[in-house]
Design a binder for these strands. Structure first.
Lengths: 165, 165
DNA sequence: TATTGTTATACTCTATAACTATA
DNA sequence: TATAGTTATAGAGTATAACAATA
């Protein structure tokens, strides 16, 4: 749950309920347990991001995608590197930057994890008609885009674009 | 972002991006600032819940709806009660329970807040055709319901309903 | 004995500030 | 001097355990 609620459209309560579902820490713990892993949530988030990116990411890029701040990423990378789950390579194009890559061990870990979670989501949507699945993705894509634009404007200016009266 | 990613359906990345958007603390802070308030996020969440419920709620009910644990709610209620934003009344039907209600001051606060946030969401969806808005709500409703069922099963048994092989 | 809520404490996650190295 | 990252510290948010009161 989140304080953002009670929209004119009636949409907000649904979004917030969904967010509550996806935030449940219990879920994550079940997944790592099923996978026989011992990683905290932000650490796994980093691995999933690296896995999805298919190429090494900079520390700053990881922080941006997680919507967190640099030092938070660094701390987890330190721990992950000690365990040989990721490795840091100096970016040849900029000696200041580091490129973060999964090690083979890291890739195995994230594969085990995503397989389990994907199974849950696939099971939840198993009975859906294909058309509904496609529509949901289409609408969610636009929703995310439009909300992102709106929120950026709010965060930047303190007021939504059209209410600058 | 969350470690739950990379679904077979392609749905997961969208859900997680949406979740990241809704989790941005910056947004909440902008809203309370615009409203001239000084409340932390979980406290406002409680007020929004009480406002949406339209009748007093028990402590346990608030905790359930927030997907948090009892003591967490109690601590915020203590602070909110000191500031006369909520009041606790012993439930006449069960002397153990307390009914939590907004004071007039609390209602004014939550009204100011929700008006601002609702404005943002309304602006974000202003250009949408009515049909898309309705479809989104329909699909989100089912999605939330199905995911909730699936997650409950996972949390309870450690395995999804159909994969008990 | 089970349930509602509270108090006290500890842990997880994230942010801010100060610093180092490269550009 | 600006940027990428790191280190150290502080704060917000939530959980667990032990307890009190009522059912």
């Amino acid at each position: 749950m989140d304080p953002l609620s009670d929209a004119t459209t009636g949409l907000l309560p649904h979004l917030l309920q969904l967010r509550t579902l996806l935030n449940r820490g219990q879920l994550y713990e079940q997944a790592v347990q099923d996978a026989g892993l011992a990683l905290d949530r932000p650490a796994m988030t980093i691995l999933v991001l690296l896995n999805a990116a298919e190429h090494p990411l900079r520390v700053g890029e990881i922080a941006t995608r997680m919507q967190v701040v640099g030092p938070h990423v660094t701390r987890h990378l330190n721990s992950l590197e000690k365990r040989a789950i990721i490795k840091r390579v100096t970016d040849p194009e900029d000696q200041r930057a580091r490129l973060i890559a999964l090690t083979p061990s890291g890739r195995r870990i994230v594969d085990r994890y995503t397989t389990i979670v994907n199974g849950w989501f696939a099971a939840a949507l198993a009975q859906w008609p294909d058309h509904d699945r496609a529509e949901l993705i289409r609408l969610l894509t636009r929703l995310t885009s439009d909300l992102s634009t709106q929120f950026d404007a709010v965060a930047a200016g303190g007021t939504p674009p059209e209410s600058e009266d």
